[in-house]
Amino acid sequence: MRRLATLLLAALLPLISPAEADLAKTLRIASFSTELSRKGPGLLLRDLQRGKNPQVGAILQTLTEANADILVLQGIDWDHEGRSVIELRNLLSKRIPRYGHIYAARPNTGMQTGHDMNGDGRLGTARDAQGYGRFTGQDGMAILSRLPILRAEVRDLSELLWQDLPGATLPTYPNGTPFPSRDALAAQRLSTTGHWIVPILLPSGEQLSVMAFQATPPLFDGPEDRNGMRNQDEIRLWQVLLDGGLGPTPTEPWVIVGGANLDPDKGAGRRTAIADLLRDPRLQDPRPPDAAGRTNTVNWGTSGSMRVDYVLPSRALQVVASGLIWPAEIAAKEGGADRPASRHALVWTDLQIQ
């Protein structure tokens, strides 16, 4: 197996151009919850192809300003042929050097289970999917990279059942029986969207494991706190993985990238989950600021500003710089008011690789 991996690396190294090698001396990794998801399948692709949507333009402007080498995107609808993410990549590549490598596996969002997953007595609703979604692939994830993605070595933990996570905290009724039912809980995957370990080939021949995820909001449930418990365990999965509780542990260097939907200090949810992760001595927290020195990454209006999006490198990596980029305000379709292209800021971190 080691010899096969060596041969694979030797075959892929020539794919890294001199320009890519120069870029990768300091590697910029970004996470961005784009909020590009639409209300039906194919609508995002339509808006991307028409080239007239102001939100799409503002998102492209934000990605262009970031000029990251590796982009981990959330809130982008998945389709079977990957046409939406390819179209987004092509539009972006007209502005900055081409992203030649894409990874976008099917997310759990919109994947119907055949069970009543939230206990409302109905079947087939958006909340009865593995992850909330009106259609297959709504609010998915994607990775765009200027450096090769070793697809054959990707580990996708998205099929892991919630009850199979070591130490899982599972929802129950007051009498202790499983919520919403034993059968539903037995079918419930942990990942709302996905948990991916995606190896990127660096110019040195070393691999960087990008550990990407997007967790459920710890809201929109009942007294059983189903979403709060799930959000907690989706975040805790990374520590279980690093402890060896889910098979082989990723070798350094690695970086955890994505949306936890949880602030360590304020807001709803089991905040100790993200606080514990941020304090883990195996990683480092750059706490990237925006131009005004603020570290919150989302503005939810009346719910306030919070820090919920993260790029967390392993200790083996040297952080050179980090920051936030807020998307532009755009004209709303109704009322003439302004609204952000996304309520989230793009989070970026520069890493010294060589």
Rank of each mutant, 00 (worst) to 15 (best):
E252P: 08
P289A: 13
D285S: 08
L242P: 04
G259L: 11
G247A: 07
A275G: 11
P250H: 05
V255L: 13
G244T: 11
L237H: 09
L262H: 12
D243S: 07
I235H: 02
D263G: 04
A268T: 07
T295C: 00
G267W: 03
V240P: 01
L278T: 08
R271S: 04
W254N: 03
G258P: 03
P264K: 05
G247K: 09
V240N: 00
A291H: 06
R287T: 10
E252F: 03
V255H: 08
G269W: 00
R294E: 14
R294I: 07
D280Y: 14
T249E: 10
N296M: 02
V240H: 04
N261C: 11
R282L: 03
V257Q: 07
D276T: 14
E234T: 01
L241M: 13
G267T: 11
P286F: 02
T272R: 15
P250C: 02
T295P: 00
G258N: 05
I235Q: 03
L237V: 13
Q239R: 15
D276N: 13
V240Q: 05
T251K: 13
E252W: 00
A291R: 12
R287V: 09
R279K: 15
L241A: 07
R294P: 02
A273K: 11
R270W: 01
D276V: 07
G259H: 14
L237Q: 09
N261F: 03
W238I: 05
Q284G: 02
D285Y: 14
N261S: 13
P253H: 05
G259D: 15
N261M: 12
A292S: 14
L277P: 05
